[in-house]
Nucleic acid binder design. Structure first.
Lengths: 340, 340
DNA sequence: GCTCCTCGGGATAACGTTATCGCGAGGATA
DNA sequence: TATCCTCGCGATAACGTTATCCCGAGGAGC
């Protein structure tokens, strides 16, 4: 009786509640009650229905249940890459699971159109809420969705054009800590290479670095290099900073990809002659020589907070929009303590 | 007109096709035709309906559509970790997208119960198909789902207890290539440390290594160390292999986590005195000193093939079960060419 | 012994979409 | 001018579930 019947040459049709009810000799509604563990069902009915369920290999259809109840028990996460190291996403999945929510994750893949498509698709699926690591520059197209009550939380960066809950790292403090750490180790010519100022975090970190230079009375020229993260651009910035008239003795990198580009360009031999503090953790940072001193984001806390903000928004769509800033920490491992 | 009406203090209700039809003064079915771009609709109706859609910010409900049509346009992927480096998953997402399919990915998290829950949940959601990187030891509980016509493909490892399509790397050849590469560089005492033989790939790779030793007339004792991947176990295996009466001069590691444990235990200084070929790519392998020589899996090809097998299974549920073995390649970078 | 209440189960109407069918208008043909 | 298509839209029934009623049986109270 395991073979499901096929309908006219197509795929086999799964048994429904109606089939189970017929098999058990009870009403449709009673099967629903048993499936949902309604305590008002008599034990002999429970037995009969469960036997029928087992005999038919009945499996409830979540789509129908969701359509009827209105909730999906699922939240969406639109992040830049799901299949890369992404501790925030891991924390989101864990927190969601603990809250009894299913997570639906998709990669925006550094593509504005793809981000748009994914978010709209999530809206059409009527997910209970959406967490997005924004990439695009204008999210005003989501305003109708917000008006319609779609719970939305931004992670890592705020969204532009709309007002939504947001959780992100304390970029300015992190850059300040990196600068201060190198300054305390005697460095005076400290350079910064980071992401383009077109990107929010790139903008914020470059600004913080300029402010740190100013606060310590250091000149700015030739030391701050935001821009696209290509090997060529990073190499050029590095050459300007290190081989100019007044060469830098220390470097702060603004994000992981910049850090990797710098390490690859420096090569093994010269990497140990430059003091380096990197913003953001790098996989295997402890296996490099010297091991990498980093400003680490509290990624788990960020992911957890994103889910909590979303859950609060789901419960109360009218609550005031909230922004959470999570502190960063300095992890001393060697590369940041290279003397002048 | 952007504010959606609320129903008795709850969440705002999104407009439906009925609302659009009323607003446009046409029949429900006509709205459906416009939304689905049915060419048999007169242009003046299209205009009216599209105006109503824009005015109400109507967004179709995919759940209802899926319930009605039977297909979801979504495939599921149950992998061990979504938020870690996982090129197979990246390839799956890309291939699925190119085929017009949405990907729903979830982490089994090295937990047999969690794997079970995820797979059953995917069945209840009536996804069009499922790709699984199996972890558990017995998947016979999926037989009813297979009988019901759920398309299922295994990736990286076969499934036990049921017969499903499968795509995986040529483990045996890879281990053979690693051994042969070291042998050709003059090494005669070559050790192997890898995953437990409880795991399919661990079993297959350890067996292949024993076979390689035998084929070259080398003794086996003290050289083959499968087991749990804990720092302590790997360290003990390493000590046995390197400091025994007849110490090994070269090492093959059976997977990424073992490789990392070995590198961490050896430390920077001694890593360059042991010839090492690692099975599976390691992130930043090129930045290590010496850079890591690896047996690389064709991860993109594996992910792509998994989706193709699944699509073929969806189209023809009755087609014979197929197993695809993808070759591996040797990537020479330095660590495998350390002389005796 | 009759009424009232409670308790457990059944019929039926949603949820929002698509598929099937039918029907009226208009043009082509005889 | 009558008939037959064809074309384009509308009414209505599903899809598989849950929620809202209602009803019948049984026990308690007078």
């Amino acid at each position: 009786m395991t073979q499901a019947r096929r309908e006219s040459g197509g795929r086999p049709r799964r048994p429904t509640m109606v089939d189970v009810a017929r098999e058990a000799g009870v009403a449709l509604r009673t099967v629903s009650r048993v499936v949902n563990q309604d305590p008002t069902v008599g034990p002999e009915y429970v037995t009969k229905v469960e036997a029928a369920i087992a005999a038919l290999n009945y499996r409830p259809d979540d789509r129908a249940r969701q359509l009827r109840t209105g909730v999906t028990g699922t939240i969406g996460a639109a992040v830049r890459r799901i299949a890369e190291v992404n501790p925030e996403l891991a924390a989101i999945e864990r927190t969601a699971r603990d809250a009894g929510l299913t997570l639906f994750a998709a990669s925006t893949d550094f593509d504005e159109k793809r981000e748009h498509d994914i978010l709209i698709s999530m809206c059409r699926q009527r997910l209970d809420g959406i967490i997005v690591e924004p990439f695009g520059e204008n999210h005003a197209y989501l305003q109708p969705e917000l008006d319609a009550g779609v719970p939305l939380v931004a992670m890592d960066r705020p969204m532009s054009g709309i007002s939504v809950d947001c959780v992100m790292s304390d970029n300015a403090s992190g850059i300040g800590m990196a600068f201060h750490h190198l300054h305390r180790h005697g460095h005076r010519r400290i350079a910064y290479i980071g992401d383009s100022e077109r990107v929010y975090s790139g903008r914020e970190r470059a600004a913080a670095f300029r402010a740190a230079l100013g606060a310590h009375g250091e000149p700015v020229e030739g030391l701050v290099h935001p821009g696209e993260i290509t090997p060529e651009r990073v190499a050029a910035a590095l050459d300007t900073a290190l081989h100019g008239p007044n060469p830098a003795t220390a470097l702060v990198t603004g994000n992981m990809d910049t850090t990797l580009a710098v390490l690859r360009h420096l090569g093994p031999q010269s990497a140990s002659r430059l003091a380096l503090v990197a913003f953001d953790e790098v996989p295997l940072a402890d296996l490099l020589q010297p091991a990498l001193t980093v400003i680490a984001q509290q990624t788990t806390e960020i992911g957890r907070t994103a889910v909590e903000l979303l859950r609060a928004r789901i419960v109360d769509p009218a609550r005031p929009v909230q922004s959470v800033v999570v502190p960063v920490t300095l992890k001393v491992r060697g590369s940041g303590e290279v003397p002048v």
